[in-house]
């Protein structure tokens, strides 16, 4: 267990360093963008973070279903860990999106459909975490959170469709990042994606470790309480 975590941590570090190197040294600056073309390099980690955000919430969805079916605590712990990590990565998306927007279109927030969907997603999973914090017993917390994890995930595609149509009705001032990616850019993006996927795995293992230790702690405390 410990070995596996350290190995994944090491791989994460190596791939991340490689990704950063590729972003700044290898990936070409787009030639078809007039103003501040270097800013396009935000794309690599912005998109990777978005990908992890969605992946994390898909894991929450699957783990929630498995929990309701099996009532095995491990699925609940997996869902909770994945949700928290997902919030961290979507926060990165929401912080870097406006910076890119400001540089490329001179507006912090343009209600771009993808970014707006990410914002709603972020709120949905904040709600998931709030539910976890406000339920009293462990069993109830796991059950209520699993139910909301399913509802929230099912909602996301509808949110995306609705926001996309809403934006096409309103005048679209800016066409979002329609920059064709060259093979070198694609390689860089791909390595960044792998780097963040490993980072996600590493965080997940850490979180699961913590949860396991906490369960063990609760068990010992329970035993001690029974003794005295």
């Amino acid at each position: 267990m410990r070995r596996r975590k350290q190995a994944i941590g090491l791989i994460t570090l190596v791939v991340t360093v490689l990704a950063v190197y590729l972003v700044f040294m290898y990936a070409p600056v787009p030639s078809n963008v007039r103003d501040l073309p270097e800013v396009q390099k935000i794309l690599y980690f912005h998109v990777s973070a978005a990908w992890i955000g969605f992946l994390a919430f898909f894991v929450v969805f699957v783990a929630s279903i498995l929990y309701l079916k099996s009532r095995d605590r491990k699925w609940d712990v997996l869902a909770a860990s994945s949700a928290e990590i997902g919030v961290v990565f979507t926060t990165i998306v929401l912080l870097t999106g406006p910076i890119w927007g400001k540089a490329a279109w001179n507006a912090w927030w343009t209600w771009d459909p993808r970014l707006t969907t990410t914002l709603v997603l972020w709120f949905i999973y904040l709600a998931y975490i709030v539910i976890r914090n406000s339920a009293e017993e462990d069993e109830k917390r796991a059950r209520l959170a699993a139910i909301f994890g399913i509802i929230g995930f099912v909602d996301v595609p509808i949110v995306f469709m609705a926001i996309r149509w809403w934006r096409t009705i309103h005048p679209v001032v800016f066409e979002a990042g329609q920059v064709g990616l060259t093979p070198k850019m694609l390689t860089t993006l791909f390595v960044s994606l792998i780097a963040f996927t490993f980072l996600y795995l590493y965080y997940l293992l850490l979180r699961l470790d913590i949860a396991k230790a906490k369960l063990e702690l609760a068990g010992i405390k329970e035993k001690l309480r029974a003794k005295f």
């Binding site: 800013v39 980690f45 990165i92 910076i99 980072l199």
Partner: peptide, 16 residues
């Protein structure tokens, strides 16, 4: 360039 720098700083600070 400063925008790029800001974005990557934020990413690494959050991850750190």
């Amino acid at each position: 360039m400063s925008y790029l720098f800001a974005a990557y700083t934020i990413i690494w600070v959050v991850i750190f």
